[in-house]
Design a protein around this nucleic acid. Structure first.
Lengths: 237, 237
DNA sequence: TTGACGAGGTGTACAGCGTACGCCTAGCGT
DNA sequence: ACGCTAGGCGTACGCTGTACACCTCGTCAA
């Protein structure tokens, strides 16, 4: 505000936004207190007046991504609504490639995080699910609630590795085929037989929806069958 | 060997074992090159003669956990076999509390990692699954292949936080109930109505098997229905 | 016996990290 | 006019991973 200095003062929101931008541009590892401070034209310790610690900063960055999630059309039935909200989360997370890792590594449940979980839970409850079944279904969805599936297969196989030598490469391929025939079969199926594209062969969006629908199918079946959780013993074994 | 010094020389295996022990005792964050070296009675840089970097060390530690996985009885049918192998992975991972996080954060696919994935893939293929369906099912299983589900809900809510004050606590509970009624309903269902145990209310083993069976059920149904993946366009949208 | 060699342990040093602590200054309420 | 406080600054500490040079053995060829 002060026209002399001409610098709008920091705020925790300004810090968070800058941190997200920095992570978007240079990856989450590039977000150090020092780098972030420099980007804001400020000395590192100034940040601590607005965020308590780096951990809290990361929590806030995740929040920043999650608040982009849109509410689904309230006219949808439970299944379409859950699907829509989860895919909305996916869109938000995909906009920020670092967010997946960041979400996995966070343990604190901020109000924003709780808000999304609450929204999903309410959609299921509104669909007639018992709280019990809702609970288990949310567990089964797991991180898919946040819009991503775990990276089972490698994303970027080598990047700058510069495959060493065709002869040696063929030898490695032979050995791989012998040691891991199962993976080979699965990978070639995924790429339609194109061995050279094994790494990038997965259509992640398809995999995500495949698993999501598998889980929602199962949930629907259990719901319709009136599933209830087996009696719980109150004593530990 | 040399009786004068009386010190068995290092080896990458000895380093890995020591690192796993250290992580078991003090957590994975306590595994620094310096701390590990000290435990081995050696100077930090000596480790680098046996492991290329900290990243590789962590990969090796994960391998160390994964080689504990037992092969399932070959007489089992595909479903029981997959179930057994995945639950075997779970037992191995649960023996080392840090392993879950470590596996999530690793991106390199070591031979040991590939070996486990290969074993699961082969069980499905041997059960008559097409490579295509096998691929998608493995994606759907996701990290559950490694024997853990994502920590959707908090594990240790406060630990040493020392709840501040009964009055204030009740106020927070009121606000929570108003903002997150869905979560509250689900959480109380999970604990059988005992609000004070909301954090620890989940039987993780039950949740794991619930989700696993949901996924295997779905997979079985698709398999029996002769599911095949929709035709793939070779051109991107 | 000698001498080279390589494997493996040592020591020093550097750049980077998060952050505790104290200082300084501008704006505001009394 | 005064003091309080919010907020930015500077310094410093302990920790991290690891590059690089060095030294010291055990082994083996000549």
């Amino acid at each position: 505000m002060a026209p002399g200095t001409g610098r709008t003062p920091l705020s925790s929101s300004r810090v968070l936004v800058a941190a997200v931008e920095l992570a978007d541009e240079a990856g989450v590892d590039a977000v150090s207190m020092r780098a972030l401070a420099q980007r804001l034209g400020v000395v590192p310790m100034a940040l601590y007046k607005h965020v308590a610690s780096k951990e809290v900063l990361l929590d806030g960055m995740v929040d920043q991504v999650l608040i982009e999630i849109e509410d689904p059309d309230p006219a949808l039935d439970w299944r379409a609504a859950v699907r829509a909200r989860v895919l909305g989360a996916r869109r938000a997370v995909l906009r920020h490639p670092w967010a997946r890792r960041a979400i996995e590594s966070r343990t604190r449940r901020t109000p924003v995080v709780l808000g999304h979980m609450d929204a999903v839970a309410r959609l299921l409850l509104a669909g007639g699910f018992s709280p019990d079944l809702t609970h288990h279904v949310m567990h089964a969805l797991g991180n898919r609630i946040w819009g991503f599936s775990p990276e089972l297969f490698e994303e970027e196989p080598a990047q700058g590795a510069a495959l060493p030598d065709p002869e040696q490469q063929a030898e490695m391929a032979r050995e791989f085929a012998q040691r891991f025939p199962g993976i080979l079969a699965v990978a070639t199926a995924a790429t339609g037989g194109d061995l050279s594209a094994v790494g990038q062969g997965c259509d992640e969006d398809f995999e995500f929806e495949f698993a999501l629908d598998l889980l929602l199918d199962g949930a629907e079946r259990l719901h319709r069958a009136g599933w209830t959780s087996p009696a719980r013993s109150t004593v530990h074994p």
